[in-house]
């Protein structure tokens, strides 16, 4: 959309992460609706999110949110900053770098409980 190779990949990745985040949002609205069934049902349903496999999926979602956020900022800068289009490629590299840093930093916290062994909710 914004000319050139990286422009196409950044656009495709923006679209794919956007759809993934939207699908999770719909799932998330359903899971918070379970609050209406009271503490026992909600707390039982919520243990799913503490499972190691679901933590990895959550981490993928976190990466998608970080990329979509920073690339969205890049798109807005291309639109409103007079030099935005000229630096779009450098900004794309910046988007990937900041996404990776955020991903590693948050990944540490998301996966730490798995390596720390049995958590009360994880193993009952």
């Amino acid at each position: 959309m914004y000319r050139g190779q990286s422009g196409m990949w950044s656009w495709l990745l923006h679209r794919v992460t956007g759809v993934a985040i939207l699908l999770f949002l719909l799932v998330h609205i359903v899971d918070i609706t379970i609050l209406g069934f009271g503490p026992t049902v909600y707390n039982n349903a919520l243990t799913v999110f503490a499972l190691p496999f679901v933590r990895v999926v959550s981490l993928g979602l976190i990466a998608a949110v970080l990329y979509h956020s920073f690339n969205g900022l890049r798109i807005t800068l291309i639109d409103f900053w007079p030099k935005g289009a000229r630096y779009q490629q450098q900004m794309f590299v910046g988007v990937l770098a900041v996404t990776l840093i955020g991903f590693v930093a948050m990944g540490y916290y998301v996966l730490l409980p798995v390596f720390q062994g049995c958590h009360a909710h994880l193993c009952g």
Binding site: G38, Y42, A50, R55, M106, Y109, V110, A120, H121, L122
Partner: peptide, 15 residues
């Protein structure tokens, strides 16, 4: 995301 996954753990976000 930071509140739910860094300041707290998902296993703590109970009712």
């Amino acid at each position: 995301l930071v509140i739910m996954h860094v300041s707290n753990d998902v296993s703590e976000t109970s009712y």
